[in-house]
Every structure is written in C-alpha cells, then in structure tokens.
Design a protein around this nucleic acid. Structure first.
Lengths: 334, 334
DNA sequence: TTGTATGCGTTATCAC
DNA sequence: GTGATAACGCATACAA
C-alpha cells in the first residue's frame, strides 16, 4: 500500500497539486466548494501529509529540540510534560536528548538537533557546562533558544528560572523559626546560578536573623546523596544543629548520616531540602523542601518558544515562583 | 549566514554534487583522494548535512518514535535512557511522546509519529489500551514496531518483556521463607499481561508452599498508593500477615495504612513490592522489591529496532530477567 | 572513477 | 480562483 500524495488527489479531482495544497492549507484564495471537496477526498483516500517534504520546502521543521541533564529527574520530567502539553496541540513535536551532565554530550546534542533542523531548542545546561560556544551555531542559524532553570547569561534568548533565592530564604527561615541556632548549608556547584541563588537566600536568612554569617558552615559542592552523607560529621563537628540542603538528595544523605550517628532528625537536628522529589514525603521523617513547579516552567518555556518561532518578542527573563512545603524534618521537638 | 549545501562544495571543487554526495557517504566508487578532499573542504566550509532533505529522498527519517505512558516513571525514563544509549551512536534520534495512560492520547501519538515518518516505533501500551487498531497504520506502512513491558499479542513485531512471573514468585517466596503464613496480593489491571504474570507468580509461590490458594486474599486493581492504603484494613480483616504488591506505590500505601493502625512493618506484617522505585531504599523500613532492569530493556529494544530498520529478523519475544532485592520490609522479626 | 538526470512531496511565485 | 513551474537539498539509477 503506497502513500497517497497531493498529486494523487489532484489527479483524481482533475485539478492541480497547487490547488490541493492550498485547499488543504485552508487558503482563502481557493473557493469554499473546492476546499471542501479536496478535504473530503483527501480523507477518503487516506491522505497523510508528508511533513518532511513540507519542512524541507519551508526550511523549518515542526520539531522542537530539548536538552536536559537527566530525563529521570523528577523536576526535568515534569518540565518535559509541561512543554509537551503546550507544544503538541500547536503541532510541534519534541526531540529530547540527555546531556547526562556532560559537556561533551551537550555539544553533540546541540549539533544533532541542528542537523535535524529543529524549529527551536529548549534547554537546561549541564553542571559541567562552563562555556557555551556550542550554542553559537544555534544563534547563527536564528534558531530560538529558551533556557530554563540552569541558564547562562552569556546566551541570548528567553530565560525561565525559579525563584531560587526566595525558596532558599523561606526554607532556611523555617529552620530558624523552629528554634535552630546554627544552620549549615550544603551548597551546589558555583557554576550554576540556581545554586548560587539558593546560597544567597540561605545567607540572607541567616544574616537577617543574627546579623552575621558563619561561612564555615557552608559546605561547597555537596549536592549528591553521598556528599550529604559525608558532610554530616563535618557540620556536626562545627556545631551545626540544622542544615538547609540545596537539593533533596543531599538532604536524604544527611538523614542517613544522622541515623548512623544516632542523632534524631527533627528533634536534635533540623533538615530542609530543595526540589520536592517524590521521595520527600515518603521518607521518615517527611522532608520539608521547596517545590519547583516544573510543569509550569515547562508550559511557560513552551509558550515562549511558540512566540519565538512566530517571530514575536521573547527576549525576556521570567521568574517562576516556588513553594516551600513544610513537613516534619524542619521542626524541632521541645 | 546561509547554509552551505553539497552544491556549494561541488562548485568550489569543480565537481558535481553527486560526487560530493557520494564522497561524504564514503562511497568506495569515488577515489580516496577525492573523498578526502571533499570531506576536508566540507569541514572548512562548515557544511551541515540537511537531514530533512536526505530523509525525504530516502523515504525514511533518522527519527525513532517512542510512546510511553509516563515519562516521569522511574522505569520508563530508565528505558528511554537505555534506548538513547544504543540509538544515538547509530545516528538515530528519539521522538518521545506520552500517552498519560490514555487511549486517545496514544492514538494521537501514533498518528503524529507516522506523519513525521519515523523509521520505527518503540512503545509500552497505556493501561487503557484495550484495542490496538491505531497501530494498523504502522504495520501497513511497514514501520517496525517494538513493544516492551506492556505488550499486546495482537500486534506483530518484537516484544520485550520482563520476567514478571519469576520476580513475583521470588518476592512472594521471600515472605513465606521469612515465616509469614497468610500472604495477600495487591494485583494490577487484568488487561495488562505484566500484572497477570505477577499474579501468577504469586499464586504459584503460595501453592507450592501450602498446596492451596486463598483467592480471597487477592485484591484486584490495587496498584496506586491510595489503593494500597485503603486495602490494608481489608486484608488485615481477612487475616493476612503479609502482602506482595504488584507495584511499589501500592506497597508504600500499605506502609501508610499499617502505620496508622499501629501495625509494625517487617515485624507483625511483611511487605514486598515490584518496580524498585527510587524511594524503595529511602522509606522506612526499606522496601524489598523487584528490580526491572529498565535500562537493559531499553538497550535490547533499541537493538531490535536497529535490526528491524535494517531489514533483519526481529519478530521475537524476549524475556529480560528481573532481580529480587531483599531489603528489610520482607523480614519478620522473631 | 565521475557526471547526468531525475525525483522525493511540498509550497511559493508567478502568471492567467 | 486556478494552473504552470520552480525550488528546497539530497541520493541514486544509469551513462560514460
């Protein structure tokens, strides 16, 4: 069974392919009657437009590229869902690639997407990404670029970010309000603005409370579960009685460390995380953390993308609010 | 800056586009010298092949479609990673769509992928999928179809499934070995073979132990966290002292129910799950469950896809082994 | 070993 | 309102 093309339809109807093409595109310049007729027979004949041909002709495809560090991170898969929710109804499809937090993989992903002539790229940079030359080709080809969460100021285009500062501020504040006196911080990579903002939120919350800050209580680059686990002894030695972690995984690592040392979370030691991973409400005690609204970020990114593709303005920076979710871990039993 | 094409290269070199095309494809029929020269100048000129044009010409794209129920399920995102791992180096890209467990969305996803002329489709059916007519067009267009995990016997093509039976058997057996006497089962949808197999594994393990089976201890369609939570009272009333859940989420629901009633998990009541979700080792007590090797399934599916695209045989059914991971929840304190 | 010619299916620019 | 024609960029059957 071979594919039916607009030529087949034209032949059957005794008109030219151009008319068929126009009719299917609902072009006002072809009479209503012909339009209806063409559409009807197209359906009868089981016509399926060849998007590749159309894309080639137009010089633009209906594919939008997306590069994320890891698809299996709750936050990123939520963003993807949000993007699909907006993009699919508009006729765009998502070409998803993972950087696996590797710069090289990111470079390859960009190249590969450009080869496929995507209409635009939505991305969140890898941790490793310390230069963004590989996005040059994107700009040169006038392909719109939307960054979310982990963005680089060096790149043009829309940037959609979380209100990391305020989330961190609230989380830290909640520990202080519960009565903890020396709140430590497990920070993320200094290369990523998101983590710097979280650190800033933490610092300001502490300063607002005590008028000063003990830099010693900040552990750099401790974003993994293992790093959290290992940091516990260090911050305990430094006299910390609570910790705000820049991610939920390191927060869970802290749980494990505390457990091993027999320190009781949410009694002797307060913990707050960031990200609201699914496990946050399943661990014991439940983890107070910051919810990032990934789906909403995805929707916003996708809308910006549509605007950009349509040639409308999009060179904005948008901040999506976050929500601190207070559970048990940030409490302090009397 | 306009795109450079093979024509530009040809012109510059004083050869014809065909030669350039062949040279770039490493066709033996063009001299080594010309090949090298062409490749060199192509690189110099910053040539980027237009895959859309090539695809149109070939009648096949380098896109492989993938439809999964939910991208944010640990298992599925792992499969996706496995697929990418094999497909990307071969020059194929993944077009991912979600069915959100809805038949209609699945239908639309199939159509949309076919419009994009994907080289093949890898899929795991939605729970709702009770008929597979929408895959007719796939078969008719000779587009290879690889199913994994949730498969339909009514469809041609490769089927990659987990050894659900054996995983369930082992999980149930471990509860029995720990000393539990009345093991209940929270089953999944009867429409999905995977869940039927898990049930069968459970049943056989119980029969092998006691020579008989109490059907009353099987709760149908209890796969969600909430269903697990609600089922607790019922199975306790029926005298169960342990439960094998067809999924980790319902197992966690059971935890919550037991907690509320003051029944101690892994002491008074044993629990085993299926899926090895990330939270399984983070909950208290840690959940004994069955690991599904999603990444490996992805790799296998992708390899089958490559074979299929290359016209090699692929009409097989493959069973991927699972691994029961014994943690704390299936123990029985003395 | 290289060139010639043609077409993949569509859309856009003319003309009528 | 419709038709004729060309072009998007590439790959291949056939010639030479």
């Amino acid at each position: 069974m071979k594919k039916v093309t607009i030529n087949d339809i034209a032949q059957k109807l005794g008109v030219t392919p151009s008319t068929v093409s126009r009719a299917l595109a609902d072009n006002k310049r072809v009479s209503q009657k012909t339009r209806d007729l063409v559409k009807k027979t197209a359906k009868e004949m089981g016509y399926q437009p060849n998007l590749m041909a159309a894309s080639l002709r137009r010089g633009k495809s209906d594919l939008v590229g997306m590069i994320v560090p890891r698809i299996n991170r709750h936050f990123f898969s939520n963003v993807i869902s949000g993007v699909e929710e907006v993009l699919n109804p508009e006729g765009y499809r998502l070409l998803i690639m993972q950087s696996n937090e590797s710069l090289q993989a990111e470079v390859e992903a960009v190249n590969s997407l450009m080869l496929n002539r995507v209409a635009g790229i939505i991305t969140s940079l890898s941790v490793q990404t310390n230069n963004v030359d590989h996005f040059q080709s994107v700009a040169e080809a006038n392909v719109p670029l939307i960054q979310f969460d982990r963005v680089s100021k060096e790149l043009e285009g829309a940037k959609i970010i979380n209100d990391n500062y305020s989330g961190a501020y609230q989380a830290t504040k909640s520990l202080l309000k519960a009565g903890y006196k020396r709140v430590a911080h497990l920070a993320g990579s200094v290369l990523l603005k998101a983590y710097c903002e979280r650190r800033r939120g933490y610092e300001d919350a502490v300063r607002d409370e005590f008028g000063k800050l003990d830099e010693d209580l900040i552990i750099k680059d401790a974003i993994t579960r293992d790093a959290g686990y290992k940091a516990v002894k260090e911050i305990l030695d430094k006299g910390a009685d609570a910790v705000f972690c820049a991610g939920d995984y390191s927060a869970f690592g802290v749980y494990e460390g505390l457990n091993e040392l027999g320190v009781k979370t949410a009694c002797d030691f307060g913990v707050a995380g960031f990200g609201n991973e699914p496990f946050a409400e399943m661990v014991y005690p439940t983890l107070s953390t910051v919810e990032q609204q990934g789906k909403e970020m995805g929707r916003i990114s996708a809308r910006q993308m549509i605007n950009a593709i349509n040639g409308e303005a999009y060179n904005v920076e948008m901040v999506v609010p976050v929500k601190f979710i207070e559970r048990v871990s940030s409490n302090k039993c009397p």
